[in-house]
């Protein structure tokens, strides 16, 4: 009788411990432009963000399941908690801080207009009124443009960068407003020939600053572990190596 009770207790404890061991981290990662995310034809994810996610999960000792998503979906699911961690090159804003947690900065970003090389330099304050501009939905670029005067139709909100560049080259929009670094790959490819940055990056604090990994609001423990992992890879040089493999200069 006692032996049976002990076995039952062991089984109960084993069952209780099993979810803890199997508990992984659901990581949302936006299929943004190269070199952040590269999706091969088989659907396998690769790129700077993917490697960074794997590197940090390894450092945290967590089992992470990476799931490609769009930026709007990433924000929504992080807010919902279905993603515990999100890689979407997210800038920190007060509104977002109410809904999610932000890791230590991982690199710094600016936003630039991209348009045909022959087009005169775009005045950011008049861009909405003059041009149809593609932006990623729910991004700061969309928020910036929304704050500018002009018809709503001139704000072309698109879910992914791939669709954004397609829209730019396909004529869906006259220009695009997006992170400066995200444009490099597009400009270096054949499809981006004839396109160029339109002047220097937009000088607006909402569009430049530190890029963070976002964490579900209910997982501050994960945030702590994540910050420690970021600090660790910065100190041991692995982050610099990772960055050098994907970018032509130090974006940090």
């Amino acid at each position: 009788m006692i032996l049976r009770a002990l076995m039952l207790l062991s089984l109960t404890l084993g069952l209780a411990a099993a979810p803890a061991r199997a508990q992984g981290v659901a990581v949302g990662i936006t299929t943004t432009a190269q070199p952040f995310v590269i999706t091969d034809p088989s659907g396998k994810l690769d790129g700077f963000n993917v490697e960074l996610a794997r590197l940090l999960c390894a450092r945290m000792g967590r089992t992470c399941s990476l799931e490609p998503t769009t930026f709007p979906q990433l924000l929504s699911r992080i807010e919902e908690g279905t993603f515990q961690m999100g890689f979407g090159n997210t800038l920190k804003t007060p509104e977002r801080e109410k809904k999610m947690l932000f890791s230590a900065p991982i690199w710094r970003s600016t936003s630039s207009f991209v348009t045909t090389a022959t087009r005169p330099t775009i005045d950011p304050t008049r861009a909405r009124s003059l041009l149809r501009t593609c932006v990623v939905r729910k991004s700061m670029q969309e928020a910036f443009l929304a704050a500018q005067p002009g018809p709503d139709d001139n704000i072309v909100a698109i879910a992914t960068y791939r669709e954004l560049f397609d829209g730019l080259t396909g004529g869906a929009c006259d220009a695009a407003l997006l992170p400066t670094v995200n444009v490099l790959d597009f400009l270096s490819r054949e499809t981006g020939r004839g396109y160029d940055y339109s002047g220097p990056p937009v000088d607006d604090p909402r569009l430049s600053g530190s890029v963070h990994i976002i964490v579900s609001k209910g997982r501050p423990d994960l945030l702590t572990a994540l910050d420690a992992a970021i600090n660790a890879i910065k100190l041991d040089g692995s982050y610099r190596i990772l960055m050098a493999r994907h970018f032509p200069f130090d974006i940090n």
């Binding site: 710094r108 970003s109 600016t110 400066t180 270096s188 020939r193 160029d196 990056p201 430049s208 200069f249």
Partner: peptide
């Protein structure tokens, strides 16, 4: 041309990078 164009574009991204 590909090289110097890409270098030029990258130089633009770099020149205005916060670093």
């Amino acid at each position: 041309a590909h090289d110097w164009r890409q270098a030029s574009v990258t130089a633009q991204a770099l020149a205005y990078h916060p670093s």
